[in-house]
Amino acid sequence: MTGELADVLERADAVDEIVFVEDRAEYVEELNDADAGFIFGNARHGDVRQDANLSGADVVVSAAERTDVNRRLLEDAEDALTIVTAPTEAAATRLAEEGADYVVVGRGLVGAELADLLADLDDPDALESRLAALNDRARSGSPRLADEAAGDRGIEDERERDGGETDV
């Protein structure tokens, strides 16, 4: 999700610089090769948050499942537009109360998608088309890649991450 939103921000020319924070070794090479800035580490550490200059960020996107990390990001980036993930509805409510602009709870979005899908169950052509789109997205991990077949900037796979933290 973080890579996808970074694309959106870049295309809209909405920010001067994009910085990824990631602590999983398998993404290091890919992120090092990308045009965006990259900090190897975990946002749970104060020095990593400081290096990412959270207090000066315009937008913060976090895919961290740890609610305490997201709470601290919200505190550190008080004025930024914040999009954070939450593992449960209770955590999501907490994050929204603490100032997150947009809290992503996977199951809510899955539910919405399913409701649309089931509405087409009696229409084989519509169902097939919807399933094909669903599968393309799942295979590529990125809706916009599936739609546009774009050869972006080499950080596409980074979108597959879950649990890492990314500041934009």
């Binding site: 996977g106 997205r137 809706p143």
Partner: peptide, 27 residues
Amino acid sequence: VERGAAGAIYPDAIAAERVGDDLEALL
């Protein structure tokens, strides 16, 4: 999908699309 699933639901991709659409609209 190769093993016969009619559809694969990948929550991250769904979230990325829905949130991406909303962010695009905002920007």
